[in-house]
Structures are given as structure tokens and as C-alpha cells.
Amino acid sequence: MHLLKSVHKWLSLVIAIQLGLWLLSGLVFNILDPQQVSGEALSAKPTAATIANAGPLLNHQDIIALYGQGAVRDINLHTLLGRSVYRVTLPDRIDLYDAGTGARLVVTATLARQIAQRDYLGNPADIASISKIQAPTLETRRHRGPVWQVAIDDRANTTLYISAEDGDLLERRNDTWRLFDFFWMLHIMDYRGRQDFNHLLVIVAAFGCLWLAISGCILLVNSFSLPGSGFLTRRRRRTVPVQVYNQTGSLARELRLPTGATLIDALAQQGIELPSLCGGGGNCGQCLVRIQAEAPVSADDRRLIATERLAAGYRLACRQRVDNPIAVELAGAPTTGSRRIGIEK
């Protein structure tokens, strides 16, 4: 049961920290403006796409014929800066073709700048740099393939990510989103990819919470079964007379202490604080008393008290329960104040 208590205590601390992070991140999510997080606050309102080519469009079968049988997974018509283009999806990439002429189109840095200028609501001159990224980063983790990174020198440190394959605007990132993303990582406990809800750490935390609830119920039931413990038993607990002697052997006080309580706790309730560095855990051996009657010997008594002193009636007050009238001689000077934080002799 001692091991169960220790594990329950430390696991409670870990779970409490995570609960605090969940509450804090939830509060941050409610405070942040969704428009700022998504970047739409600095995004120009989209206009309806129209077919811009004046002449006839190529048949999409002509585009498919450029590839081998079954190589094209999908082909669709859409607009890019007012220009009608065919978007051809292949197993390993995406190709663009002018829907009117059939010419192959490449999304260059210049074209990426034009796309960014069309989307960005601020001053186009604020575009500071354009660079090509081949591998996904945390800010583009949901996308694969090469991406143009358009850095904008504004107050929000906005960055636009444009697909280098088909020119689609993939993401709008800024400092507000980065703050949101940090707390999102803490919230879902995915400290690497920041997007997986169903990973091992979450599963372990869930089982930890379940175990915490079960062990808490076990400890609660066990507390009712302990002698003199629990609020139900305190109401009907009887008391017994206890005589307290000082180190000189003279009678210091006559008390009535509740049965079932440990001697160190019962004396503390009467204002007699015995020295203790372990808070009554049976580890420091400082709450030594001499009982002038036959008293049970605990494992901690045998471990911390010499054999000859055990024979003389010395016991640890934290391991002795008040069951019958007894006389107790204080082996060390009692103190005032809390023994829980450690009292020097």
C-alpha cells in the first residue's frame, strides 16, 4: 500500500501539470483572434474565378496523351492569376499547362511574388524575400512537394507559402499563428509533428488518468478501513488517558488522546510537536519516545532503533497508535511549529 501511495502521489503531480497545460492552452485559444491566427485579417477578399481565355480551350485528352497510359491520376481546369490552366496530378508531382495553348507552365519566384501580392492586403513593397523550400517545415507540415516561402516585413511577421507545383496558396503564417501553434503542441502533447491526436504519449496519459482514478478509489476505501481514520470514525472515536513525562522523568501533562491516531499526530493536536524530518513517514527516526508499557515493534522501529533501546521501550511516535492508556516519556525536546518541513533538534 505504501508503494501504491507513492506512485499515486507522483503520478498525480504529472497529471496535474498536464491538466494545467490543457487549461492554459484552452484559455489562450479563446483569447486569440481566429482571423489573426488564420492570417485572413491581412488577406484580400477572393474574387470569383472566371475563364479568362478568349479563344477555345484545349481538350483535356490532348494533355493526358502527353503521358503514358494510366500515368495521370487527375486533371482539372482552374485559374491562376486570371489565366485558365490545366492542373495535372501525377503519382509523384503536379504539372501545369496553359489551357489555351497547351504550353507547360512553371511556378517561378516571379510568379510566386505576383500570387503573394494578389493575396496580401498590406503594402506589396513589404515583401522582403522569396525562397524555395524542398522539404516540409513545421509551418508547412501538412503539405508535400516544393514550396515558395514569401517572407513579408510587417508587424505580424507574415509568411505566405505558395506551392511551387501549381501556384496554390497553401498557408498564411504569422506570429499570432506561431503562438497558437506552440500552445496547440502543448494541448495535444505532440511535441514533434504537432498534428497527431492519437500518439503514444496521449494513450499513456489516458491510461495514467484511469490508473489514478482506480488507485484513488482503492486508497479511499483503504482509508476507511484504517483504525480511527476517516470522517465517519472521527465522530465516534473514543479517547484514552495518556501521561506525558519529560526527559527528567517528571510528569509534564495528562492528556486524553483519540484512539486510532498515531502518537505523533495525537500529541501534535495537543500542541506537542515532536521533531521529525520525514513528516511522520518512519524514515528519519527523530520522533523517538519511550513508552512505559508493552508496545508493539514495527519494522521501522527495528530498522532505526538499537536493540537495547527497543528493549527499554523506545519507539517511533509515528509508528505507534493510541489504543490504550499509556505513559510516554519524551526522548527529545518537543518543538513548536510544523514538523512537516523538518525540525532540528
Rank of each mutant, 00 (worst) to 15 (best):
R315V: 07
Q269L: 08
N222L: 10
H199E: 15
L251H: 06
R235W: 12
A311P: 03
A311K: 14
L232Y: 13
R303D: 01
R315P: 10
L257E: 04
G228W: 04
C209R: 07
Q292P: 13
T233Y: 04
I264T: 04
D301M: 08
Q269W: 01
G281I: 01
Y314L: 10
R302T: 08
S276N: 03
Q292I: 12
G249K: 05
T248Q: 15
W211A: 09
V221E: 08
R256N: 12
G285P: 07
I272G: 01
G313C: 03
A306Q: 07
N198L: 13
S223P: 06
L200K: 13
L257Q: 00
A266T: 03
I291D: 07
L274T: 00
I214S: 07
A261L: 12
N246E: 10
C284P: 02
G285I: 00
R253C: 05
L212F: 14
G282H: 04
V297G: 05
G208C: 08
V242S: 03
S215K: 05
L219F: 03
A306S: 11
G280R: 01
F231T: 06
E308A: 12
A293Y: 03
D301Q: 08
Q270F: 03
L316Q: 02
S250Y: 14
A268D: 02
I214N: 06
E294H: 15
L277E: 07
L200P: 09
V240D: 02
V297I: 15
E273P: 00
I218M: 10
A306C: 02
F224L: 10
F231W: 09
L251N: 08
P275Q: 03
T239N: 14
F231D: 10
A295C: 15
V221Y: 13
A266H: 03
C287V: 03
G260K: 02
N246W: 11
W211Q: 05
S250C: 12
G271T: 04
L316Y: 04
Q247M: 12
L210A: 13
R235F: 10
L274V: 00
I272D: 00
R290Q: 14
A299T: 08
A311N: 11
A261S: 10
I291K: 06
S298A: 09
I291M: 12
